[in-house]
Nucleic acid binder design. Structure first.
Lengths: 143, 143
DNA sequence: GCGATGATTGATACGAGGTATCACTGATGC
DNA sequence: GCATCAGTGATACCTCGTATCAATCATCGC
């Protein structure tokens, strides 16, 4: 999980200024351990609607945030460490997200391409379930 | 691809009435070979906004429509034949959708479950690329 | 220091896509 | 014939964004 300074450094390194508004958005984001909506950031950061959305988009473009797709189709965002293409395993009860470091469909993509003739350029893959802590009540009991 | 009568039968079998408004929505849907938005159905069917959305949701719940996730996170809908769980390969140029009958991540789900302790309940998997016809200009030419 | 320039901001309007409300309608059961 | 209830559609509202645009702020050359 990158610290505030690291993100600000990444912004500056790419020629973006670190302004009070951007810092407020970043702090709001850093205070959320899991995924969040832009709306949540707006409530926490004292920054205008447009600025929040612009900053979130910017961070996505710079690879500092990633999008998390929820089961119902909504998009959330999530701070990204220094990692590349990956997928998520989302707990539908507590919202915890587990990053899956390896992309498991690389081989499948090649198979599909030769079977269908498509030139495959991208994919979405997200998993949903209940994490260990949310399952615990199920497991300990005699029932 | 189910016919109008088949869908109406499925509705009636579950205790839903086949009304003129629902039939209009169904006809609008049947006239779209690929995926569509609820908005497109509204333009084609002479039915109110709420009715269109309600009908689309109903058909999803009954398993007669499926949701297609586009690369940018938007949701489209698509008529579903008599098939079960499947995934999509979407052409980003012409919008053509190829259904992938086999769910390729079943094994992966079991692996993930034992590795993470999650009880995995669902997943999204959609592929994006360019279909054969859209690639043709690339391929035939000398260039 | 000063003006020009360009990045950034935030209020606001707008748009897609969808839900909630509620009075009304029309079919159905008794 | 009447009560009931599913279905309808106008409307308001919500979420999650983008576009616009005047104002502001930092920086740079002079």
């Amino acid at each position: 999980m990158p610290a505030l300074e690291a993100i600000e450094g990444a912004l500056e390194a790419r020629g973006y200024r670190v302004t009070p508004a951007r810092r407020a958005v970043l702090q709001a984001i850093l205070s959320r351990p899991e995924h969040f909506t832009a709306e949540e950031v707006m409530r926490r950061a004292r920054a205008g609607r447009a600025t929040v959305f612009r900053t979130v988009r910017l961070l996505c473009e710079l690879g500092l945030l990633c999008r998390v797709l929820l089961e119902d189709g909504r998009l959330h965002y999530r701070l990204l460490g220094p990692r590349r293409h990956h997928h998520h395993l989302v707990c539908v009860e507590c919202g915890r997200v587990q990053d899956l470091e390896e992309c498991a469909v690389g081989g499948l993509v090649r198979e599909l391409a030769s079977a269908t003739g498509y030139e495959i350029q991208g994919h979405w893959l997200e998993f949903y379930g209940r994490c260990l802590s949310c399952r615990e009540p199920d497991q300990g009991g005699v029932r």
